[in-house]
Design a binder for these strands. Structure first.
Lengths: 208, 208
DNA sequence: GGTAACTTGTGAATCAATTCACAAGCTGGC
DNA sequence: GCCAGCTTGTGAATTGATTCACAAGTTACC
């Protein structure tokens, strides 16, 4: 299959979100124009995005809401459950462990790990915090697919290396730095500082 | 000035992060190659990014670390303090209110607001939670520059509209949906579900 | 059955971002 | 002062993403 751009995948997720809304409202068909309006893009973009994976619409009519939703879930790999390990039981890790949005969309938190001996054994939202030295064991036992790295910047690359050695191939990084991972591993980084600085730049340079 | 792409601004932030590290280690010059290696990009990219704003390097030598860092802080608008209002005192809002990374980079949390009467008056990390109906007043009193929207998806667009009406021109959105804002307002969205689904897609389509 | 009104899917064209490649400039050593 | 060794800054080339534009297909209605 041809390579699919990140931006395309992001938009597919958005489309799916809208489709689920439409589904809940009992609508059965939707046009690329309607999807585009909701996502802040254009109808041509919507059609191009979808055309990467086949043609699901009916000319003159649009797309079947439930059918397209199902197809998008397949494409995004959301029919199955993904098992997530959270590493770092600080503020962010704890917030994520409790976050309902994970579970709702098929991402099940399987364990919470931390390096701090003082935290090990305590519970967060039902999870007993385990030592990060258990990473290999816990990862294997829980058949973890994805690791969420929510540790301070200093330790993050080291943690990432261990995660990869444990055979986990998806990493979501909340540490405020750029991790280096091999091509076989998929990395997404959420860096609040970066986003804020983006706002800072835009605000600084807008009123001219 | 020519329009600067988001991706460029993001990289500038990254470069600044590295420069600060180098500065702390007492290094005085750095080449585009070294910056590129850290950021997972190429030296040509680094030079192009910087060339949007002038030429700061010395041929044959590289860039002065403190000088380039200062210049990047200027470009990104980080010499001044930005005042942030957090709207939504749930899990995410609370985690953000306590997050030290904000303060460290010149973003001062000025207030925390919520719509739930049961929460108003309670404190989070020193902030008395105020009613969202006070938005106009609090925004003006605190001279807020940026609003962080950390409310459930249902209410988010409505909150955004009020934020904009209150004259706030920068929005960082944590609600899992696409907000619509006029061009005069700068919006950044952090959508965990989107990122996770990106991982799901990549993992589903990698082992072929 | 025919026509009017829509909407998709997609090649072609445009617009944007990244990479290439090299002249020009700086430094240190002799 | 001159040469060798680096490194920047930047047009040109390439690669990638988005938008345009339209043929082809579908439905509703008379």
């Amino acid at each position: 299959m041809k390579h699919i751009a990140d931006s395309t995948v992001r938009r597919l997720s958005l489309y799916l979100r809208f489709l689920e809304e439409f589904e809940a409202r009992g609508l059965t068909t939707i046009s690329s124009d309607e999807l585009a309006a909701r996502g802040g893009t254009t109808s041509a973009q919507v059609r191009k995005d979808l055309s990467c994976f086949g043609s699901f619409g009916k000319r003159g009519l649009g797309y079947s809401v439930p059918q397209l939703a199902r197809r998008l879930r397949e494409i995004l790999g959301l029919q199955r459950e993904w098992r997530v390990i959270i590493i770092g039981a600080g503020k962010i890790g704890a917030a994520l462990a409790q976050y309902q949005g994970f579970r709702q969309r098929g991402f099940r938190v399987a364990a919470v790990l931390d390096a701090d001996p003082a935290k090990i054994g305590r519970t967060i939202d039902g999870f007993v915090i385990q030592s990060i030295d258990e990473l290999d064991r816990v990862g294997a036992r829980e058949r973890a697919d994805i690791a969420v790295i929510a540790v301070p910047a200093e330790g993050a690359q080291h943690v990432a290396d261990r995660v990869i050695r444990a055979g986990i191939r998806g990493i979501m990084n909340f540490a405020p730095l750029q991790l280096h991972v091999p091509d076989s591993v998929t990395l997404r980084t959420v860096n609040m500082a970066l986003e804020l600085e983006g706002l800072s730049f835009a605000l600084s340079n807008s009123r001219e």
